[in-house]
Structures are given as structure tokens and as C-alpha cells.
């Protein structure tokens, strides 16, 4: 995620090579893999109460027990079933990721739209975007979280504040080029108002791009949530995969054989969900982003 932000603030190389058909097909395969991962995790999140063998907050067995028939992934330091914790954690991680990315998409699209449609205002707005892009990401996240306090709503707000900037940039450059097109100039000259032109002509053409950005941003938001929870700054009442790892770290689980069922599964799930959204986003971007498509 941080990487995505930083590569975008670097000068953008233009791709002039013709993309071969083979590589296009492979991109599509990656997109399908991503979609399957996202759908599977979404199903787990929705069906969590049905799928989870125990209530993740109840003490279901002896603390620190290894995997057994009753507890497929063993139990944690207070005897909660780790498998159930993983299943319910899907809800927290996906919700935070999706809601934060959606908020960032709305903010980024609005700033990008206005910034691209009114270039002078946009130049000022982009200075603001640059400031957000340059500030050290993780430390800023931590400072905000430390002052705002630990709750799931605050986590969403903090992540959204940090990840909207790249979206604003991408949307703005798209709108800048759209606003110069003949039919928009024609619409304006026939007396169409700014609001009408934006709604009727600009927004529909940028929405697809915004959706691609949203999917890619979700991947980053999931990773940020996990980092925040791992540092003990997540919601104490909503156990996510990151907070499972926080407790595993606090209890030194990775120094014992327990790492195989206590440390490995939550990390794999974080990775899988971030990867699912990243692949889906990458495939969408290849299809949607005009700069990459005509290559």
C-alpha cells in the first residue's frame, strides 16, 4: 500500500510498448483469481455465525492448547477458539478495509473531480494531496490513532484520511483530459451548467476508474488495519486478524511451536485478502486506466 502511494508520487513512466495478447489474457487470469479470493472471504464474513464452531469471545477450552478435533487451530492464551476468531476476524478486517476504502474513494473522487474540472482550484488542491503523500505514513497513522483512541470507527476514519490522496490524483488527471474534449466544450458553450456537465458527462466516465482505485485501496486499507491492530491500536472489542497477532506477539507465541497455528493462519488470511483485492484491482486497472490501456 505504502509502495503504491510512493510509486505514484514518482514521475510516471510512459509505456509505449504494445501489450501482447498473451499477457492480456494472463492479466485476466490474475483478475479472476482475485475475484474468487474476494468472494470466498466475503462468504466467510457473511456466514461467520454459521461457520464458526464457537463464540470467539467465550472461553471454549484450555488456554494454549494445540490443534485438536474440538479446536482445529487450537486455543489462545485465554482459551478462546482460534479458528472461530479467524472466521469472525474476516468480518472486522473486510469491513474496515471496504468502508475505509469507500470513504477514501468518495473523498478522492470529489477532490479529483473538482480539482480537474476547475484547474486553478485543482492546482491548490493538489498541493494538499502532495502534503498527505509526503508525510510519513505509518508514523502519522500511529500518532492519529494514539490521540483519537481505539475504536473501529476511528480506525476507519484514520485509514481513509491517509489513503484518499492517490485516488484524487488519478481522478484529476482523467478529468483534466475529459474537460478538454469537444463534446464537453460543446455542452458548455450551449449553456449547460457546471453541475449538469459534471453529472451528465464527467462523472460517468470517471466512476469506473474510481471503482478500480477503490478495489486497489481496499487491499492497502486491510494491511493498514492489521498493522494498527498489531501495534495494539485497534478496537479492543473487535478482534481482527491483526489483534490476534498482537496477542500472539505479546505472549511470545512465535518463540514456541504455537506459531504454526497462532501466528501462521492470521497472517496468511491478511495476505490472502490483501492479495485478492490487489489482483482484482490490478486487473481492473489494466482494463480501465486509459494510460495503461492504449499502450
Amino acid at each position: 500500500m505504502t509502495a503504491r502511494v510512493i510509486t505514484e508520487s514518482a514521475p510516471e513512466p510512459q509505456i509505449v510498448l504494445r501489450r501482447s495478447r498473451v499477457s492480456g489474457d494472463r492479466t485476466r487470469v490474475l483478475g479472476v483469481i482475485g475475484a474468487v479470493i474476494v468472494l470466498a472471504l466475503g462468504t466467510v464474513a457473511v456466514l461467520a455465525p454459521v461457520l464458526a464452531p464457537y463464540d470467539p469471545t467465550e472461553r471454549a477450552g484450555t488456554p494454549f492448547s494445540p490443534p485438536s478435533a474440538e479446536h482445529l487451530l487450537g486455543t489462545n492464551d485465554v482459551g478462546q477458539d482460534l479458528l472461530s476468531e479467524m472466521i469472525y476476524g474476516t468480518r472486522v478486517s473486510l469491513t474496515v478495509g471496504i468502508v475505509a476504502a469507500a470513504a477514501a474513494m468518495v473523498l478522492g473522487t470529489v477532490v479529483g473531480l473538482i480539482g480537474g474540472y476547475f484547474p486553478r482550484l485543482g492546482a491548490v488542491a493538489m498541493r494538499g494531496v502532495d502534503v498527505v503523500l509526503i508525510l510519513p505514513f505509518l508514523p502519522l497513522l500511529i500518532v492519529l490513532a494514539a490521540y483519537l483512541g481505539r475504536s473501529i470507527v476511528n480506525t476507519v476514519i484514520i485509514i481513509a484520511i491517509l489513503i484518499w490522496a492517490p485516488t484524487a490524483r488519478v481522478i484529476r488527471s482523467q478529468v483534466l483530459s475529459l474537460a478538454k474534449r469537444d463534446y464537453i466544450v460543446a455542452a458548455r458553450s450551449m449553456g449547460a451548467g457546471h453541475g449538469y456537465v459534471i453529472r451528465r458527462h464527467v462523472l460517468p466516465k470517471t466512476l469506473l476508474l474510481a471503482i478500480g482505485e477503490f478495489v486497489a485501496a481496499t487491499s492497502g486499507a486491510i494491511l493498514l488495519e492489521s498493522s494498527l491492530s498489531f501495534l495494539g491500536l485497534g478496537d479492543p472489542l473487535q478482534e481482527s486478524w491483526g489483534s490476534t497477532l498482537y496477542w500472539a506477539q505479546a505472549r511470545g507465541a512465535f518463540l514456541t511451536p504455537a506459531w504454526k497455528w497462532w501466528v501462521l493462519p492470521p497472517g496468511l488470511l491478511i495476505m490472502l485478502s490483501a492479495l485478492g483485492f490487489a489482483l482484482l484491482g490490478y486487473a481492473l486497472e489494466q482494463r480501465i486506466n486509459p494510460r495503461l490501456r492504449r499502450s
Binding site: A3, S226, G242, F254, I270, M271, L272
Partner: peptide, 15 residues
Amino acid sequence: MIALESTPQFWLGML
């Protein structure tokens, strides 16, 4: 590389 970008840093360290 996309998979690596999706890996939580702290988790890799723990492993």
C-alpha cells in the same frame, strides 16, 4: 511481487 506487497511486514518478521 504483488503477493509480497500484500504481506504484512510484522508477520513476515515473526515467521
